[in-house]
Nucleic acid binder design. Structure first.
Length: 313
DNA sequence: AATGCAGACAACCGCCCTAGC
DNA sequence: CGCTAGGGCGGTTGTCTGCAT
């Protein structure tokens, strides 16, 4: 038995809002506020709309200081870099962009930025790989496989690099040696207490990709240490039930890790950051291990942004 | 002028989380 | 402690519009 619907679907109006409905809703909220109850609100003001629909209309369109369309280049950069580090957390992105709603950002990403990025990638691929080869076939296979996944999976390290380049973002690949401490904490009912040491990994660059069946899929870009890459992944998988967690199994795991001695996992958010970070390192790890004053101004700026994002979460 | 198609974005759906009981 | 309702959120769908044929 599913949950009961929030309103009588047969008795509410759906589809585009009329100017009259907008005026009613806006006028009421500006005068009395929402009263903390969206479900009851439409009845109060005589709107034949679902409460959730009213909420959405207000938040995405009617409330003051909402900007529509015309994203600035600076906003493009912020969206792109946030997507790289946190994935499709639209509401968090919206918090970083005053006047923008999560819906707006999501639409903008899906219709403009994603295509710009993938279009460029396609062109570059055609230029770079004119001849058919085994490697190409493998890549094609992988591409087909990943096309069935969400956008998370479609974004690869090199694509993200290109996104940075096409948007004139500074490319940040860490050169610092990171000594990463391990600590454990109970999160979401999953204990990481056995995470003493993940062993010594010497990974120049690796990509680890999960598929929808939660079976680790591993691909490589040279130079890298495949064995160690796999080892790191399997350690994660075995110890913390890596698979099956929403944040991870729909993501592309793309990271560039230099001289990893162990890793730091205190929450799924940490894993997520590690996973998503195209800059090559987890900012929380970075926080513990790399002095902020050793970063370039650009790195520092990204770091600050990420810290704010973490706070918002 | 009619039709088809693609892009843009508004709106909806359904799941998850949480506060209150 | 379990249940429920409301709110929040990400993914998806629907609709409108402009352009090409």
């Amino acid at each position: 038995m599913g949950r009961s619907p929030c309103c009588d679907k047969t008795n509410v109006k759906r589809g585009p809002w009329s100017p009259e409905e907008d005026a009613k809703l806006k006028g009421y909220i500006e005068q009395y506020g929402t009263g903390g109850n969206w479900i009851a609100l439409p009845q109060k003001i005589g709107l034949r709309r679902c409460g959730k629909s009213c909420r959405l209309r207000w938040l995405n369109y009617l409330r003051p200081n909402i900007k529509h369309g015309g994203f600035a280049e600076e906003e493009d950069k912020i969206i792109c870099s946030l997507y790289m580090s946190i994935g499709s957390r639209w509401s968090i992105m919206a918090a970083q962009l005053p006047g923008r709603t999560d819906n707006d950002i999501k639409n903008y990403w899906n219709t403009k930025l994603k295509k710009r990025l993938l279009g460029k990638q396609r062109k570059d691929d055609q230029r770079a790989r004119p001849a058919s080869s085994l490697k190409q076939q493998m890549n094609k296979k992988r591409e087909n496989f990943m096309n069935t996944e969400s956008i998370h999976v479609n974004l690869h390290h090199h694509q993200l690099q290109q996104c940075q380049q096409s948007l004139a973002l500074p490319e940040i690949i860490p050169q610092q040696e990171g000594k990463l401490s391990v600590y454990s904490q109970q999160t979401n009912g999953n204990s990481f207490n056995n995470h003493n040491n993940l062993g010594s990994c010497d990974i120049s660059f690796h990509e680890v990709i999960t598929n929808s069946n939660d079976i680790p899929y591993y691909s490589s870009s040279s130079p890298f240490d495949e064995l160690n890459g796999m080892q790191l992944y399997n350690e994660l998988d075995n110890d913390v039930a890596f698979s099956g967690m929403d944040m991870v199994n729909r993501s592309t795991i793309t990271s560039s890790i230099t001289s990893l001695e162990s890793t730091s996992i205190s929450s799924w958010g940490d894993i997520n950051s590690l996973v998503y970070s195209p800059m090559g390192y987890n900012y929380k790890i970075c926080q513990q291990t790399i002095q902020q004053d050793s970063m370039t101004p650009e790195e520092s700026s990204y770091f600050r942004m990420q810290q704010e994002t973490v706070v918002l979460q």
